[in-house]
Nucleic acid binder design. Structure first.
Length: 575
DNA sequence: GCCGTTTTCGGCCCGACTGTTTTCAGTCG
């Protein structure tokens, strides 16, 4: 089943949005948002809790606890149903457009009866918004831009959403009698940042039981196609999932074929042809005799083509075929190479959990070191002060003292202002073990100014990592406009690492930017940017992205032993 | 609606930026 925490979170968020759209008490809406976030990041399954247990979650009081219990028991909450009845679902969708919030959405609905993105688009092109109070030409332009951005993302879903569904389906189908292998393939296996549909492969002699089980999964909303070799469903969340069952002796060939990418497959099929072979999802065959020469495992297939096995994250036809033919594939960084996390938050700022809880979770992962980097004062809403962060440092030093195993680092996530300066002067920054510095404001700055801004941050002797360097939000906000090559070169020169922020909405730097930055000789930090203990596990998406950027462990500073990391943080050997 | 070294009311994450106004509302981080 889908995780009930996520469903409850979605319900409470929806209610909060509806309250805001209808002009309800903003503080009440915020209370629901806060509770939604707390439940979404709560490390235990809320369906196991009663009202009393729920109220122990920070931000959840009597009213919300009762609603959650009601929802878990009956699947609906009267107050939410009433709000839904008052406002068409399309109106809430409008608020997902960047630059369009609840107030403007409500005006559009009340004045023009606009209740969908398509209707809004038509109204703008028909110049219907001009006469509305608070709307002008610039607003129209911003809304259209926001819509274009959303449509560019299309029906693709974030990597973590697809992974969650795929992991569950694989677990489910692996339990079916006769299963000799089950794995997800496609862009998900290649760890692309967004996924259009999910491909699942099963190895078995008899396909019927799998097709049957698949069509009756609890979150199957619709069976799109059903056959002997392939069945397609749509989940309740609208995601298409294809299942293919193949015999065990075609497993490797099937996995290669369905993992793709298309460009990669075209390249290796051409190589097969040159060897007098033919490659399909059923195997590698001799063109003349039709005899199957390899198919059982991916390694067999690649080996018969004279190539090393290529990790799925590299299969984009970006030179991996040549490298595999020459035996020059990189030894990619893996999740188990990571010795620590260098960008994390606690509830001192916008994290959900305490310092102790975050540290305990990190310790369970077996890290050698762990950095706490809460927000700095200029992200005003977090209300950080000198005193608060120095108190936190004392706590961290106390917790670190005399402990064996994981070491604690005290850091901060600074804000890079328009000039490229950060929150504190050098003498204060020197007290931190490391500083992450990120852009959180003024995303629309011109290219030259933006470049200067980032270069100045890189040249700050106390800045060690540029956090989420382009600040993009996948499907929501484009990255900033800057001369990234100049920034990457500056990072390499000054010993400033570029972050690969593993949050699935960011994955920033992206694979292509990583490839460019590596050319400049820059180093990287794969960080979770965790705001809860659950987020710490999102590191796998950062590692996937790093692999797609061809990174080895040596490229990633948080795979290094602490002593080497500390030398890097002191910028030894850099200008 | 939640919460309380100010406990049953009265605060609540604050400030900048943008585009629209002609003094400010809406949106965002």
């Amino acid at each position: 089943m889908t995780r009930s925490n996520e469903e409850v979170e979605a319900l409470l968020r929806e209610y909060a949005d509806l309250l805001l759209i209808t002009g309800g008490d903003a503080f009440k809406a915020r209370a629901y948002e806060k509770a939604a976030r707390a439940i979404g990041g709560f490390p235990r399954d809320v369906s196991e809790l009663d009202a009393k247990g729920l109220r122990e979650i920070p931000g959840v009081g009597k009213s919300i606890a009762d609603k959650v219990v009601e929802y878990l028991r009956t699947g609906s909450v009267p107050a939410v149903d009433e709000a839904r009845a008052a406002i068409p679902a399309g109106v809430r969708q409008l608020t997902a457009i960047p630059a369009l919030g609840p107030k403007k959405a409500m005006v559009l609905y009340e004045e023009l009866h606009i209740a969908s993105i398509d209707e809004l688009s038509d109204a703008i092109h028909g110049h219907k918004l001009r006469d509305l109070k608070g709307f002008g030409p610039k607003t129209e332009e911003n809304i259209l831009h926001g819509i274009a951005l959303m449509q560019a993302a299309g029906d693709r879903v974030p990597l973590n959403v697809a992974m969650g569904v795929a992991d569950e389906i694989v677990a489910e189908l692996s339990r079916v009698t006769g299963c000799e292998g089950c794995e997800y393939a496609g862009s998900l296996r290649r760890m692309k940042e967004t996924v259009g549909d999910i491909d699942i492969l099963v190895a078995a002699d008899e396909s019927v039981p799998f097709m049957e089980a698949f069509a009756h999964l609890p979150y199957t909303a619709e069976v799109i196609a059903r056959g002997e070799k392939k069945t397609s469903i749509r989940t309740t969340k609208g995601l298409q999932v294809d299942l293919r069952v193949l015999p065990l002796d075609s497993w490797g060939a099937g996995l290669v074929y369905f993992t793709g990418s298309k460009a990669h497959n075209i390249r290796i099929r051409a190589i097969a042809m040159r060897h007098g072979l033919k490659l399909s999802e059923y195997g590698l065959f001799d063109s003349r005799s039709g005899e199957r020469v390899a198919s059982r495992s991916e390694e067999d297939v690649y080996a018969r083509l004279g190539m090393d096995w290529i990790p799925p994250t590299l299969r984009e036809d970006r030179g991996e075929v040549e490298a595999a033919l020459n035996g020059h594939l990189p030894e990619l960084v893996t999740e188990s190479d990571l010795r620590g996390d260098l960008h994390t938050h606690t509830n001192l700022t916008d994290g959900l959990e305490s310092l102790e809880e975050m540290i305990a979770a990190a310790r369970r992962r077996g890290y050698a070191y762990y950095a706490v980097t809460d927000h700095a004062p200029k992200l005003y809403m977090q209300q950080m002060t000198d005193e608060k962060i120095l108190d936190q440092r004392e706590q961290i030093r106390d917790l670190d003292r005399g402990r064996r195993g994981m070491r604690l680092l005290h850091g901060v996530e600074l804000n890079i202002d328009v000039q490229g300066d950060v929150d504190w002067p050098d003498e204060f920054l020197e007290g931190f073990d490391l500083c992450v510095a990120s852009v959180h404001t003024q995303f629309g700055l011109g290219r030259d100014e933006m470049t200067r801004r980032l270069l100045r941050a890189c040249e700050n002797p106390n800045v060690n990592i540029i956090g989420h360097p382009t600040t993009r939000l996948i499907g929501k906000r484009p990255g900033i406009d800057a001369d990234l090559d100049a920034v990457f070169a500056a990072c390499a020169r000054t010993g400033t690492a570029l972050e690969i922020n593993a949050h699935p909405d960011r994955l920033d730097l992206s694979d292509e930017n990583i490839l460019r930055a590596k050319e400049h000789g820059a180093k990287f930090a794969v960080d979770s940017d965790a705001h809860s203990t659950l987020d710490i596990a999102a590191l796998r998406y950062g590692v996937g992205t790093a692999q797609r950027g061809w990174l080895t462990a040596d490229d990633v500073i948080n795979t290094w032993p602490l002593a080497r990391l500390r030398r890097f943080l002191r910028k030894e050997g850099h200008s």
